[in-house]
Measured scan of single mutants.
Amino acid sequence: AFSSEQLARLKREFNENRYLTERRRQQLSSELGLNEAQIKIWFQNKRA
């Protein structure tokens, strides 16, 4: 489960760009304390 802070950040990123570069995913992973797979799957689900 994502914290409300993490979700807000993911939604902001998604609004700016529906697709993440690998580098951006790595940055978000480290900033949010999530693993890259969690972020990747969140974006895939959000696009679906």
Rank of each mutant, 00 (worst) to 15 (best):
S4R: 10
I41G: 10
I41N: 15
R24S: 06
N35L: 10
A48V: 10
Q6M: 06
R9Y: 05
N35D: 15
R24I: 08
F43N: 00
R47N: 14
E22S: 12
N45W: 13
N35Y: 06
F43Q: 01
Q26M: 11
A48D: 10
S3G: 04
Q26T: 09
R9C: 06
W42T: 01
R47K: 07
E31F: 03
L28C: 01
R25F: 11
I41Y: 10
L32H: 01
E31P: 00
L20Y: 02
A1L: 12
Q6C: 07
E16Q: 11
A48R: 13
L34K: 01
R47W: 13
Q27E: 13
Q38D: 14
A37Y: 13
R12T: 09
K11R: 14
Q26L: 10
N35F: 06
L10W: 00
Q6E: 04
A48T: 08
R23H: 13
K40N: 14
N15I: 10
K46S: 14
F14M: 02
A8Y: 04
F43V: 01
E5D: 11
E5F: 06
K46G: 07
K11G: 11
N17F: 06
Q44R: 10
Q44E: 15
T21D: 13
N35C: 08
Q38W: 11
S4Y: 11
L20K: 01
G33I: 03
E13S: 05
S30K: 14
L7K: 06
Q6D: 04
A37I: 13
L28A: 00
L32A: 01
E16T: 08
L10M: 04
E16K: 14
K11D: 15
N17S: 08
S4K: 13
G33K: 06
Q38P: 01
S3K: 04
E22G: 10
L7A: 04
E13R: 02
R24Y: 06
I39G: 00
Y19E: 09
K40Q: 15
E36H: 04
Q44K: 09
N35S: 15
K11A: 14
L28T: 00
S29R: 03
Q6T: 07
R9A: 11
L34W: 02
S30H: 13
F14L: 03
R47M: 14
A48G: 08
Q6H: 06
Q27N: 07
L7S: 04
Q26D: 05
T21R: 03
E22R: 14
Y19P: 05
L10Q: 00
L7V: 08
K11W: 15
G33W: 02
L28Q: 00
Q44L: 07
A48S: 09
R23T: 14
F14W: 10
Q44Y: 09
I41F: 10
L28E: 01
Q38K: 06
G33A: 05
A8H: 08
R24D: 05
F43M: 02
I39M: 03
F2K: 02
S3M: 04
F14E: 02
R9D: 02
Y19L: 07
Q27M: 11
L20M: 06
L20A: 04
E31D: 09
E22N: 11
G33R: 05
A8N: 09
E5C: 07
L34E: 00
L28Y: 00
R18I: 10
T21S: 12
Q6A: 07
R18D: 07
S3D: 06
A48F: 08
S29T: 05
L32N: 00
A37R: 10
